[in-house]
């Protein structure tokens, strides 16, 4: 048998010791539940799940504030949870904290949803703050637990609610649908067969917006011949919310 070279013996010992240290360290330091469910510490899942919740959930609010909830559910705010406006209330619900949930009363809060923004879905009720009763608190006119759209054009808004919503907050709010649209009687019973007509000439807009029209002084006037060139009015302006730029 060939003799093992002398150099290899201490090296072998050294490597075995190092491997041994690694094995022992693994035994000592790898967390107990590591690898039970996968390549991770199984107890970490429970630790994440143990985090306390700050938002109680609207069902908890019902226990005490059922009356408000019922009223809200009949309004256009039915889809809102209480904590959307009032903030996290778990501490209030459990009694851990004496601090009451916030009651936002300023215009800024309502504007987070209802301020005009071109990226919001068409038909979502939006206002231009500087034109919509500037300076007044929203809650002065609107009950946030039972907000209602301005009435009017009741017949049309039964189907065209989105458009009605939008028009209601625009400077065209006082116009009737029939001021611009021609609506045959049968449109109400057979809407797809007998269609309402949209304006087909700029004359319709010109009734108010042309120079020399008899409309009130606050209505913007333009030179019908010059303004907009070859484009028609509604190619740039949205008649149901003319403040919005298309």
């Amino acid at each position: 048998m060939r003799k093992i070279p002398q150099q290899l013996i201490p090296l072998a010992v050294l490597f075995i010791v190092l491997l041994g240290v690694l094995v022992v360290a693994r035994q000592l330091f790898v967390p107990k539940t590591f690898g039970d469910l996968g390549h991770y510490r199984a107890t970490a899942v429970d630790e994440v799940a143990a985090q306390p919740a700050a938002y109680a959930g609207y069902r908890v609010c019902l226990d005490c504030h059922d009356d408000i909830y019922q009223r809200k559910q009949l309004s256009s705010h039915a889809g809102l949870a209480c904590e959307t406006c009032h903030g996290a209330a778990a501490a209030h619900a459990t009694g851990e904290s004496d601090q009451l949930p916030t009651v936002p009363r300023g215009r800024d809060h309502c504007q987070l949803c209802h301020g005009y923004n071109s990226a919001r879905p068409t038909g979502f009720p939006q206002i231009l703050s500087n034109m919509h009763n500037p300076g007044e608190a929203c809650v002065k006119c609107h009950d946030s637990h039972s907000p209602r759209m301005a009435k009017g054009n009741g017949e049309c808004s039964a189907c065209h609610q989105m458009i009605a919503n939008q028009k209601a907050v625009s400077s065209h709010m006082s116009l009737d649908c029939t001021d611009c649209h021609t609506v045959p009687i049968d449109h109400a019973t057979q809407p797809r067969v007998v269609q309402a007509l949209k304006p087909n000439s700029e004359e319709t807009c010109g009734k108010c917006h042309a120079r020399g029209s008899s409309a009130g002084a606050e209505v913007a006037r333009i030179d019908m011949a010059e303004h907009g060139g070859r484009y028609l009015c509604w190619e740039c302006h949205y008649p149901h919310l003319p403040e919005a730029k298309l």
């Binding site: 070279p5 002398q6 150099q7 013996i9 201490p10 090296l11 050294l14």
Partner: peptide, 18 residues
Amino acid sequence: TLGSTDLSEKALAFDNKA
């Protein structure tokens, strides 16, 4: 040296080879 003090020709040859 790790206790490996062999300087024989064979050992040196092994060093070289290794």
